[in-house]
Computed example of a mutant assay.
Amino acid sequence: MSDTAPGGVVARLRAAGCVFAEEEAALLTGAAAGPAELDAMVGRRAAGLPLEHVVGWAAFSGLRIEVGPGVFVPRRRTEFLVERAVALARPGAVCVDLCCGSGAAGAVLLDTVPGAEVHASDIDPGAVRWARRNVEPRGGRVYEGDLFAPLPPGLRGRIEVLVANVPYVPSGDVALLPTEAREHEPLVALDGGADGLAVLRRVAAGAAGWLAPGGHLLVETSGHQADRAVAAVTAHGLTARTLTDEERHATALVATRP
């Protein structure tokens, strides 16, 4: 049997430890232009590259988000955060996707909220390149820089929905992440400092000055960090609550400027 026949592809993926070998084989076969490309793609996947990096896209909230080597792959649990953002965004809302990575949140806001004005930023140049492919064709803008620094000054006091999918893995736990994340996604998108909340604290410190009155900051966190995350944002004058989705193992913090 050929290595690129359906059974051969499944066998190679299974031998490499891919738990969902049949599903992955179907995606790879559908993405490849021919047997030679399929063989190369299966080789990359068997070597440990994230499936999404190999096929060039990630499924997220009904969209195909373009991704590739060196960018954080949007997680299914983050769909919960973005769904909450969409629910809070009125038509024409001014929205920001901070720590945007591939721009998945911004892309969903643009596709879902009528007339939304969406800006996105990330400190990682590689992420910005991918975000521009996902956000700017939909009418948004993407900036490179640290948190709020690259955003247009005219957004101060006008942001109605601020999504910040900050890194929140404690530095000491990064080594415990799956190999795909540790070796193929940027550390800056994973490492949240000593207790995992370092970047969140910086976002919280600046958020009140950028949010419109009644505007919302939405951040993904973990269940065991939730109480400390709430304390981090309320220390800067925001009211806060947490929401959970057990099916997706997701915890979202929603903070509001009074």
Rank of each mutant, 00 (worst) to 15 (best):
Thr4Leu: 05
Arg75Met: 05
Arg182Ala: 03
His224Phe: 06
Ala105Pro: 14
Ala255Asp: 02
Ala235Ile: 02
Leu187Gly: 12
Val128Leu: 11
Leu13Thr: 10
Arg228His: 09
Ala15Gln: 10
Arg77Trp: 00
Val67Cys: 11
Ala36Pro: 11
Pro150Arg: 04
Gly214Val: 10
Gly214Ala: 06
Ile65Asn: 01
Gly48Ser: 12
Val128Arg: 00
Glu66Leu: 13
Glu83Arg: 14
Gly209Val: 06
Arg64Val: 13
Ala208Met: 05
Thr112Tyr: 10
Gly145Thr: 10
Gly172Phe: 10
Ala87Phe: 04
Leu109Tyr: 13
Arg76Ile: 13
Ala250Arg: 07
Leu218Ile: 08
Leu13Ser: 04
Gly115Ser: 09
Arg90Met: 06
Thr239His: 09
Phe148Arg: 12
Gly8Trp: 07
Val108Tyr: 11
Pro91Tyr: 06
Asp122Trp: 02
Ser171Gln: 12
Asp195Arg: 11
Gly237Pro: 09
Val9Trp: 01
Thr251Pro: 07
Leu51Ser: 02
Pro170Lys: 01
Leu238Cys: 03
Leu49Arg: 01
Phe60Val: 12
Asp97Leu: 11
Gly193Met: 04
Leu49Met: 09
Gly139Tyr: 04
Leu81Pro: 05
Leu27Ile: 07
Thr239Val: 14
Glu220Thr: 07
Gly34Gln: 14
Glu160Phe: 03
Gly215Lys: 13
Arg138Thr: 11
Val73Trp: 04
Ala131Ser: 12
Pro125Thr: 01
Pro50Glu: 07
Thr29Tyr: 08
Arg44Asp: 13
Gly196Asn: 04
Leu63Met: 12
Glu23Pro: 05
Phe60Met: 09
Val96Phe: 03
Thr244Pro: 12
Glu246Val: 15
Val174His: 01
Val71Cys: 02
Arg45Cys: 03
Asp195Pro: 03
Val128Cys: 14
His184Leu: 01
Glu117His: 13
Thr179His: 15
Ile65Leu: 13
Asp39Val: 00
Cys95Asp: 01
Ala149Gln: 14
Gly8Asn: 10
Ala208Phe: 08
Glu183Leu: 15
Leu109Lys: 14
Trp57Leu: 01
Arg90Ser: 15
Leu63Val: 03
Asp195Tyr: 05
Pro178Lys: 08
Val10Arg: 15
Thr221Pro: 00
Asp122Ala: 01
Thr251Gly: 00
Arg76Trp: 05
Asp195Glu: 09
Ala231Ser: 15
Gly101Ala: 04
Ala32Met: 14
Gly30Val: 03
Cys95His: 13
Gly206Lys: 08
Ala107Ile: 11
Ser171Cys: 03
Ala40Gly: 08
Glu83Lys: 09
Leu13Phe: 05
Asp124Ile: 05
Val203Pro: 02
Glu144Arg: 15
His184Glu: 02
Trp57Lys: 03
Gly193Thr: 08
Gly154Phe: 02
Leu151Met: 05
Leu38Asp: 04
Gly101Lys: 04
Leu13Asn: 15
Leu238Trp: 08
His216Ile: 13
Ala47Met: 09
Ala21His: 11
Glu83Gln: 12
Asp191Leu: 03
Val199Met: 07
Asn165Thr: 01
Ala89Trp: 10
Leu177Lys: 04
Pro150Ile: 05
